[in-house]
């Protein structure tokens, strides 16, 4: 397209949109570096006299961030790994194998995407409880492994690979497991990375399930554990804000490194409708 004479207007409007997005974060960071008196000053002062890094140490010692991060890391890693294995295997069957009732089963699985998750919460609670797994980290992983989005997402990826690829391997004497594992999976690795990141993001932000199945703080993920921080320490705003920074910034930094995959993954969810 030709040079756009509206560029300054566009940049200005986007600056406003970005400011609306960023302002809450900036205010959180600034507050986290203030003293209590500075935090509650009326009218508010923008910058602190001196950066109070000590707020971070105080809240780190008051609240089990290390445990919550470790739990989150375990739950996210296990859910991502489990979900990818289950989804990739099923996606291979739907994309490459002929079997009775295939299309009907696939449509039924797509239909699951439309069902609100709350429908399953009480039964999940009962099932996990009856297995004696409530208040364990496994409880946070189990239902998430079977999210069906990946089946749909990876089937699309497999379908973009020409069938000649596996037929050539088949003629060479490879079986389905080898075609799946050695030929096709490597070819869709970028889709697998995107899926993994999406699942990680969903697991990372999940709130209600951890909250109801695990009642003790040391068995929760950060997302749910942080709800306790809101409840318990609300009076010390500067410390709560430091807690907010501790729990949001590591992932924001990760996001800057992996943003290509994250944004491509998100974008891909919309492409096929």
């Amino acid at each position: 397209m030709k040079k756009d004479k509206h560029t300054p207007v566009i940049v200005f409007l986007l600056l406003i949109a970005s400011a609306m997005t960023l302002l809450p974060y900036v205010w959180m960071v600034l507050t986290s570096l203030k003293t209590y008196e500075e935090a509650i000053r009326i009218p508010p002062k923008i910058l602190p006299e001196k950066f109070q890094w000590v707020n971070f140490r105080i809240i780190w010692n008051k609240f089990p961030f290390a445990t919550l991060y470790l739990n989150t890391f375990f739950v996210v890693a296990a859910t991502v790994a489990g979900n990818i294995v289950v989804a990739a295997m099923a996606a291979y069957a739907f994309a490459r194998l002929k079997f009775f009732g295939r299309d009907l089963l696939f449509i039924a699985i797509l239909g699951l995407l439309m069902i609100p998750g709350q429908i399953f919460l009480v039964p999940h609670y009962q099932i996990i409880n009856s297995w004696g797994l409530s208040n364990t980290r496994i409880a946070l992983v189990l239902p998430g492994i079977f999210r069906v989005f990946g089946v749909f997402f990876l089937r699309q990826a497999f379908l973009t690979i020409p069938k000649e690829m596996d037929e050539a391997a088949f003629v060479d004497g490879a079986n389905h497991l080898q075609i799946f594992g050695k030929v096709l999976v490597p070819l869709i690795s970028s889709s697998i990375v995107s899926l993994g990141i999406l699942i990680a993001l969903w697991t990372w932000t999940e709130l209600m399930w951890p909250l109801i199945i695990n009642r003790s703080l040391d068995k929760l993920t950060l997302s749910a554990g942080l709800a306790f921080l809101i409840g318990e320490h609300t009076t010390y705003y500067e410390q709560v804000m430091a807690g907010g920074v501790i729990s949001s910034f590591p992932v924001i930094i990760l996001f800057f490194f992996f943003q290509r995959y994250i944004i491509e993954g998100i974008a891909a969810t919309g492409v096929k409708g």
């Binding site: 807690g243 729990s247 949001s248």
Partner: peptide
């Protein structure tokens, strides 16, 4: 950003 952090800010 996780919802709890959004809630905090």
């Amino acid at each position: 950003t996780m919802p709890a952090a959004i809630g905090i800010l």
